[in-house]
Structure formats: structure tokens, C-alpha cells
Nucleic acid binder design. Structure first.
Length: 424
RNA sequence: GGAGAGAUGGCCGAGUGGUCGAAGGCGCUCGCCUGCUAAGCGAGUACACGGGGUAACCUGUGUCGCGGGUCCGAAUCCCGCUCUCUCCGCCA
């Protein structure tokens, strides 16, 4: 959520920056609401102050019964006025909140301005895309041939856009999760978290999924939501808290299943498991001061990259442009891994700096020094990595002419030394 | 699911209609004292939203789980809800 005060005081600048996300933005209604609210709050408060003074009259020594009646009448009238003003303030605040919660974050000055993914900027590349001397297969064909991915079974038990891992496929997923978590906890200084996969509404509002993107979420009963990413429960770990500055930065890494309805992506990536309703992911989340957030963001991207490097998977780092930026993000880098089967680069990680946007929604603050006023933290997160897509990348990059797939060296210890998934 | 208890400031814990943003203690911060990381003394120690001021700061209002009600006035009385804890049952 944006700072109302800032928006109102920099109306044109905010409108212009928001419009770089696409579509025009009219903030006049917001400003009007804010002005009305301020007037209403002022009159409500002064009416209350007056009521207080009148009420004190009852305690004065020697109040005559007549005086009491008089006081009673004036305070009653005041009270009725206050009730009306309170209702007005509540109504205005609800409407204001509604507008603010539906307003996306301001793109950072460093975010390239652009209309769509075509305008994203390649920041750097690592490795050389593999050139195979045989026709490359896509991951679903490889996976089904090897008997490690079963889309047919998934269709029966759940429906379209699900996958069942079997045998070495299931083990590969598990190995990747352990491998990633180990690297981030032992080499990069993250604390491992295993969060609930079902969260309450406040969490979803706090990180920005709600209220605007209900149609993307799996809603369970009791106003509970299946997490679309571990970012949601992990960021909300510190909701409504004032953290001690000495604790920052706080770095968490969490494994979770991620549930997404993928509404509006009909016809996209219909084959295979590039886009499924449930996938597993290792997610890094940081809470930092505003001063360090940029550097911490860059470091987090490097932490994600190190997984791809360890697995020797060629990739590139892309800076998302304003038009492609997520709702809550101010700045975002995507890591795109090269897939020989698809013959293209595909997103495998998305690393965002939300600055104080989520912190303001979720009220996550820190105290710079004892006695000082609390400030909002900056939140940063990124996949490290999406496991399903890592499996895809391994299958497509390490496929052999005979249909078998070799295991990246770094991963072998997690698979009992296994070097190859043989074609049966 | 059944029965009971509770929800007050960073923590513990008083408070049953006005003088309560809230006693007392602990913790913490600053200062004093003390010849040595202890004890003692003094002061301070929530958050939000308005108004004023360059600022330090001053000032109004609200907040004692949440929402509603009674009343001139509610932490205190009434109603509803939520959550937590204990016991029983069930259960990975």
C-alpha cells in the first residue's frame, strides 16, 4: 500500500509513475476522499473534545439539579452529532482503504519503463545454451518416457494442470528441495522456515494477493487460502510487529507447495508442467532497512543464481520493465533458464524488492534506535528456485540421445550418488 | 465435538462507572552516585490519526482482544464474535 500522505502531496508524480505500468491512472477521487476524511476527522475530534468538557461539568462541586439537566441536554445533543460524524469517518476510511489496497506499488526509478515483457532488459547471462547433436525433446516427453512424470494419472485424480511424480522423479524433486535449502542455509545465511500452506485473509492482504486478485487464489472454507507462494506466510511472520533494528536484515528461506488457479492463462503452456495449479518452490524472504534493501535485493538475486550455477544450467537475468512488474513489486529481476527442448528461456525465479509496500499493508516496522519512531521495513523475496521448473530444466538440459538424463554433479549426493536416470 | 477459564502497556500484574493511557513490579534508556560489569538514587519509557512549528517540540482525538448496546460519561455494566489456555473425546 502506498503512503496516503505522499500520494496526496505528489499527486501528479504518483499518477505518472503508476501509469508506466499501463493504463491511465486518475487519483483525483482519492485526493477528494482524503480531503473529506480529514475534514470529517477534525470535526469529529473537536466535537468529542467539547463533549469531554461538558461531561467534566458533572463533577464540578455544587452542580444544581437544573445545571445537571442542562448539561445532560447539551451532551446528549453533542453525542448524537458525534455518532453521525463517526459514521461518516468510518465510511470515508473504508472507501479510502479500498482505493489504496487496489493501487499497485510505484515502480522504482531503476525499473525500465516499458509496456510488456518485450521491453524487459537483459542484465547479464551465465553459461552457454546447450546445443544438442540430436533432436531435443521437451520435458513432458522425456518425463513420460522415463516413467517419472505422470500427467495422465494427475488428470484423473485432480484434473488439468497437475502432475504426479513417480519413482526417481519424486526423488529428484525431493533432492532439489534439500539441495536448495542446504545451500541457502549453510552458505547464504538464511534461516529455514516450514510455514503453513493455508493462511488467513490478513496474510493475503498483507502481501498484496487480496483484495484485487481473488480469482487467482484457491479459497478454502473458513476464509482460509491456499498459499500461492511461501512469500505469503513467511512475510506475514512479522505482521504487526516492530522489529529491533539489530535483528535486520532477517533472512528466511522456506519450502512450500504453491497453489495457483492460473485464471486468465487459458491456452498458455497447456502441455507439461511449466504452468500447473500446484508446484513446489523454495523461496527466500528478507526484511531489511530502507538503506540496505537495494544491496540486499542484489545479493538475493545472486543467491538464486548460485543454484543455477551449481546445477550448471545456463540462464540470463532480466530486469522487468514497468509494464511487466508484479502488483506489489517496485523492482524485479527474473532469472530465465535456457530450455533446449522448448528452445527458449523460461522464468525459473522472480526476485522482487517491494520496498515498504508490503510492510505498510502488513504493518511490519522496525525501530532504528531506542526511543526513535518506528519505520516500515523493506521486504524482498525471490524464488530460489521453483522446483518443478528446475526439474524441467534438468530434464531438457541433461537429456541424452538415448532418452536418458544425466544428473548434475552437485545433485548426485542428494540422490545416493545416482548419475543418470536411465531410459527403461 | 463436549466442559471450564481467560484476553489490560515490551513482560508480569492491579483496577467494577467519571480524577485511568491506565497503580505496582520487572525489563529497557538516560543521568547521578559508588575506586573497580553489583547495589543504590533520580528521570524517562506505547501506537495511530488530526492541528501548529524549520526543528527540538507543543497540542486535539482515539486505542485496556474485536464489534455493537446502555449511560451525560465505560478498561469497568449488557449483548454478539474472535482468539488463547486447561480437561475430556477424536485424530496424523
Amino acid at each position: 500500500m502506498l503512503d496516503l500522505k505522499y500520494v496526496v502531496e505528489h499527486l501528479d508524480e504518483v499518477a505518472e509513475r503508476l501509469s508506466t505500468r499501463g493504463g491511465r491512472v486518475d487519483l483525483e477521487p482519492l485526493k477528494e476522499l482524503a480531503t473529506h476524511r480529514r475534514t470529517a476527522v477534525t470535526s469529529r475530534d473537536s466535537a468529542r473534545a467539547e463533549l469531554k468538557t461538558v461531561s467534566d461539568g458533572f463533577r464540578q462541586p455544587g452542580v444544581t439539579p437544573e445545571r445537571r439537566e442542562e448539561l445532560r441536554a447539551t451532551s446528549k445533543a453533542l453525542g448524537e452529532g458525534i455518532t453521525l460524524l463517526e459514521a461518516e469517518v468510518t465510511d470515508l476510511e473504508t472507501r479510502l482503504q479500498d482505493v489504496l489496497l487496489n493501487l499497485p506499488n510505484l515502480p522504482n526509478a531503476a525499473t525500465p519503463v516499458g509496456a510488456s515483457a518485450d521491453d524487459n532488459v537483459i542484465v547479464r547471462s551465465w553459461g552457454t545454451p546447450r546445443v544438442l547433436d540430436f533432436p531435443a525433446k521437451e520435458h513432458w516427453e522425456l518425463g513420460e518416457n522415463l516413467g517419472i512424470l505422470d500427467f495422465e494419472a494427475a488428470r484423473k485424480i485432480s484434473g488439468a494442470r497437475f502432475v504426479v511424480y513417480r519413482g526417481l522423479g519424486a526423488r529428484l524433486e525431493r533432492a532439489l528441495a534439500s539441495f536448495m535449502l542446504d545451500l541457502h542455509t549453510t552458505k547464504h545465511g538464511y534461516t529455514e522456515i516450514l510455514p503453513p500452506f493455508l493462511v488467513n485473509r490478513d496474510c493475503m492482504v498483507g502481501t498484496g494477493q487480496l483484495p484485487k486478485f481473488v480469482e487467482e487464489a484457491y479459497v478454502a472454507t473458513d476464509d482460509m487460502y491456499l498459499v500461492p507462494t511461501a512469500e505469503v506466510p513467511v512475510t506475514n511472520l512479522h505482521r504487526e510487529e516492530i522489529l529491533d533494528a539489530s535483528r535486520l536484515p532477517i533472512c528466511y528461506v522456506a519450502y512450500s507447495a504453491c497453489f495457483r488457479r492460473e485464471a486468465g492463462s487459458h491456452g498458455k503452456d497447456v502441455k507439461g508442467m511449466t504452468r500447473v495449479h500446484q508446484f513446489q518452490k523454495v523461496e527466500m524472504v528478507k526484511f531489511t532497512t530502507p538503506e540496505t534493501s537495494e544491496a540486499e535485493h542484489e545479493a538475493l538475486v545472486c543467491n538464486a543464481e548460485s543454484i543455477l550455477q551449481a546445477l550448471e544450467l545456463p540462464y540470463r537475468v532480466v530486469a522487468l520493465c514497468s509494464g511487466d512488474l508484479g502488483f506489489s513489486a517496485s523492482k524485479c529481476y527474473d532469472l530465465e533458464v535456457h530450455l533446449p527442448g522448448q528452445g527458449s528461456f523460461r522464468e525459473i525465479s522472480s526476485c522482487s524488492n517491494f520496498e515498504d509496500y508490503q510492510a505498510r499493508r502488513a504493518s511490519i516496522r522496525y525501530r532504528p534506535a531506542p526511543g526513535e519512531k518506528p519505520r516500515f521495513v523493506h521486504t524482498i523475496n525471490g524464488s530460489g528456485l521453483a522446483i518443478g521448473r528446475t526439474v524441467i530444466a534438468i530434464l531438457e538440459n541433461y537429456q541424452q540421445a538415448d532418452g536418458s538424463v544425466t544428473i548434475p554433479t552437485a545433485l548426485r549426493p542428494y540422490l545416493g550418488g545416482l548419475e543418470i536416470i536411465p531410459n527403461p
